[in-house]
Design a protein around this nucleic acid. Structure first.
Lengths: 154, 154
DNA sequence: TGAATTAAGGTCAGTAATGGTCAAAGAAAG
DNA sequence: CTTTCTTTGACCATTACTGACCTTAATTCA
């Protein structure tokens, strides 16, 4: 009936729902303590369930006064298509797939022709500067740019 | 919420904003007294948050009548400032340099605190998913996100 | 005048407080 | 039985804070 990770996930989502601001600040050690598990379990939950593709943004800081902040974007219906495509981006992305995603977003008018050009140009430029890991970089860039765009227009 | 250092930082920045001249003169001992901490804590705050990279100039004098003066360098055009910072990003970018750039952009109000957070979070998350080439990815991501932001606004 | 005193600020190493990473072991699912 | 997901723990990295000790400048006063 649900793993530990599921419970931690649910707990964080509940806090998120109850927050006015759609974001919560956690203490990794304390949360781990609440659930009687090792701290790294928290990282596991965050890494597997609170990803960009799912609309979450996780930010943290170490050291004294450190924290983990989790934010959630409520995605508008008009962006459902964009989110689907975002989710389809894995750890790597070849050029062809990127073109397909961008063209689709443009055709569905999720992004403007201008945004299409800008994003395409940026990625081409950046990917051209590295010799290895092009597909990984492409995946990261497209994911980030799309998310950032959606986030800004929210 | 926030460490002592954060509060001292905020306090100095507030004074800076309220000053006509973009500079303030502090008494280390008195400031430490206000915040009920040791004087060297003030040095810590100055050394970590009011660096030249972030656009601050700190000068001081010891002995009787000693003082600490903090100035925020005036920037002609924040848009140009952003361009300069963008250009300063090389093929690799370590975490500290990224923090400096983002903090500077935030302090010069090129990006909002919210954008600061989101960009920081996106990069943290993406960089966390790769095992090698973190600095390269960081450089690409920051360059792209800032470039994208600026492109859309102009 | 110049040594002693007073009044600042500076340094640095050590300690405490957090969070991060990674690989291996264990559990669940197919 | 194999694969995938979960959990753990040892080790790592970063940030904050403190206190003992040091340096410099102004003032006092013999």
């Amino acid at each position: 009936m649900g793993t530990l990770a599921d419970h931690i996930e649910a707990y964080i989502k509940k806090m998120l729902r109850e927050s006015q601001t759609n974001s919560v600040e956690l203490s990794r050690a304390q949360l781990a303590d609440n659930f009687a598990c090792v701290p790294s379990q928290i990282n596991y939950v965050l890494a597997t369930r609170f990803t960009l593709e799912r609309g979450y943004i996780v930010e943290s800081r170490r050291g004294g006064g450190g924290y983990i902040r989790v934010g959630h974007v409520q995605v508008d219906d008009s962006y459902q298509h964009a989110i689907k495509l975002l989710q389809s981006i894995g750890p790597e992305l070849d050029e062809r797939s990127m073109e397909d995603i961008l063209a689709s977003l443009r055709d569905y008018q999720v992004i403007s022709p201008r945004e299409y050009q800008v994003i395409r140009g940026i990625i081409q430029q950046e990917v051209g500067t590295v010799s290895a890991g092009k597909d990984i970089l492409r995946a990261s860039l497209l994911r980030s740019l799309l998310f950032f765009m959606i986030k800004l227009e929210e």
